[in-house]
Simulated assay, not measured.
Amino acid sequence: MAKPSLREKILDAGLRVMFRQGYNGSGIRDIVAEAEAPQGSFTNHFRSKEAFAEEVLDRYFSHVRSLAAQALEDRTLTPRERLRRYLDIITERLEADAYGRGCLIGDFSLEASSHSERLRRRLADIFVEWRQPFAACIAEAQDRGEISSAFAAEDLADFLLASWQGAILRMKVERGPAALERFKSIAFATVFRESPNRTAEERP
């Protein structure tokens, strides 16, 4: 009888280890120890640490996309409310981790992109894909007159994600939510503020 594959278990373990120790600080021995798997099982399934890290990143991004969909596809909320709901969902999850764990996409962008061209390219593609549902939501808000159309929806989506990543980094340093709440308050009072031209009848 063939032995069961340890591939998924190693990927799950790798996600936990790389969150704790970063890309450079995570060795193959650390990962297989976390997975309680023999070291040879890693090389049986993955050609290199770099290739493994790309799969870990894809697994994490799949989870992030599901969280975005949870907020941005909620038609009981206005587009502007959906944007805020996404940030609140992420804030709740960061709070559950005592503000000590951030976003693996942001962590890899800082650490791995300067050492691995393969991971840099994958991260660039992730940011393009990640932007799309936010840009669509922002465009809908602009079409409804809910927020200003002074900037392109794609540019506002990039601004939102990049600035939010910065707030998460500050949060990790401070081990508290102040940077997250400050960003949300300022962003939704300025860039994403409700259009002053919107009449009371247009509001939900």
Score class of each variant (00 low, 15 high):
L67V: 13
A37G: 09
A37W: 06
R75P: 01
L77N: 06
G40H: 07
P38G: 06
A53E: 07
E54A: 14
T78R: 01
R47G: 14
Y86T: 07
Q70N: 09
K49C: 02
S66R: 15
T76P: 02
R80S: 04
T43P: 12
H63K: 15
E81H: 11
D30Y: 08
I31K: 01
L83I: 00
S41L: 01
I31P: 00
R59A: 10
R59D: 05
H45G: 08
D74T: 01
R80P: 01
L72N: 02
I90A: 15
A33I: 10
E81F: 11
L87T: 04
I31N: 02
D30E: 11
T43Y: 15
V32M: 03
I89Y: 10
A71P: 00
D88T: 14
R85I: 11
T91A: 13
R85G: 10
E81Y: 07
R47H: 14
R29G: 14
Y60R: 00
T76R: 08
E54D: 11
D30S: 12
N44R: 14
T78P: 02
A35D: 04
Q39N: 12
H45Y: 11
D30R: 11
T91H: 14
E55V: 03
Q70C: 05
V32P: 06
R84I: 10
L77I: 07
Q39Y: 12
F46E: 03
R47P: 14
F46P: 05
D58W: 04
L72Y: 03
A69P: 07
N44M: 15
P38L: 08
K49I: 00
R65P: 07
T91D: 15
L87F: 01
E73L: 12
R75E: 06
H45A: 09
L87I: 06
N44K: 13
Y60K: 00
T43L: 14
R84M: 12
L67M: 13
S41R: 06
E81A: 13
R47A: 15
A68D: 07
R29F: 12
F42N: 01
